[in-house]
Amino acid sequence: MEPVTVTICMGTACVVMDGSRLVLLEEHLPERLRGLVRIRGERCLDLCTRRSAALAPFVLVDGEPLANATFESIVLRIEERLAGRA
């Protein structure tokens, strides 16, 4: 199966809103998702200026923006994507 792509914004607003640790996502993936996720760090995705910096940190899961991202919410979204494909 094609892996789910998670793009993590590493821009200034996302770091300021406590998103720096999201680049450690790999370590926080549950065993069942290993190998099913492709993780990329990106320069500012500009979602903070288009939406609101208060909604940072942002990630994209298969291109879909996720605001206020946490390890938990990212994992949930990945599972939804995988369920949608099955």
Binding site: G11, T12, A13, V15, V16, R43, C44, T49, A53
Partner: peptide, 17 residues
């Protein structure tokens, strides 16, 4: 650092740009 970070966001400054 936190206060500087907030100022960068308020001023619309992206460090890497």
């Amino acid at each position: 650092f936190e206060e500087l970070g907030a100022a960068l966001v308020a001023w619309g400054i992206e460090v890497d740009a």
